[in-house]
Design a protein around this nucleic acid. Structure first.
Lengths: 127, 127
DNA sequence: TTGACAAATGCAACTAAGTTGCATATACTT
DNA sequence: AAGTATATGCAACTTAGTTGCATTTGTCAA
């Protein structure tokens, strides 16, 4: 698949690169409107899909019934504060030992995993 | 919250208890129809919600854009085969060490986590 | 530099998953 | 057996995401 460099696509990607935590399609659409780039929502969804399938984006789900996307950086996991909604990254390669165990014990070859932690962030724990 | 014992509710719960892997609302609705329990989808969603909020069910998401539910058993994680869709359980309390580290290093108190592994099951790895 | 052609876009209409308001019915308590 | 909170059904709605199709735009090779 050959990705072309279009205004909509680079606006979406730039926005994701600058975002400090994963964003959903709705937030992207709002952002584009605020910049007077009148981009159709279909274009947004199709671009997220294309960028994701080409390995430029990561797709995550935090139990909200919708996906969030972030640009692909070092492998990491998320700390999601269930009180204020803040999302922190933690760098992580904790699971290699477990994945080897799974391969031995279950005959299952792990290709990827999703790991998110829910709880209270530093601020919210004190309130 | 006081849960009443109604036919719809116990049919849904029984189905989940007997299911070997997490099921979605659609599967439950189909099952109920096949048993000629003509239960409205709203009732299904409301019951899943009530059972979940009362701690009788677990809710999971496997990147499909919808939720799956399973009855609450020992804490475990899932192995999801990306080829045939088979879902296996692995019992797991692997993360306590990591969660303590997070508490120390990030000041974040982990209340729950979600961890799923995607890859190829024993059968599919050989094809 | 100019076609050619694949890839991208916009529009409208659609689907799937889940929710809400409201009137009626049913389970549980006393 | 009555009263009341809880549950249900229906219809209508919302939110997230998808599809078909006609038009436009990037890119690459001549």
């Amino acid at each position: 698949m050959n990705l072309k460099n279009t205004p909509a696509r680079s606006a979406i990607y730039d926005f994701l690169v600058r975002s400090s935590s994963p964003v959903d399609a709705g937030q992207i659409i709002k952002f584009l409107r605020s910049k007077n780039l009148n981009t159709n929502k279909v274009t947004v969804y199709r671009n997220l899909d294309a960028l994701f399938k080409n390995g430029l984006l990561e797709r995550v789900e935090f139990g909200e019934g919708k996906f969030r996307y972030e640009f692909k950086k070092n492998h990491h996991h998320h700390l999601i504060c269930t009180n204020c909604g803040k999302i922190e990254d933690i760098s992580g390669e904790y699971l290699t030992v477990i994945e080897n165990k799974i391969r031995k014990e279950n005959g299952f070859i792990v290709k990827s995993h999703s790991l998110e932690f829910y709880g209270l962030c530093r601020n919210c724990r004190n309130n």
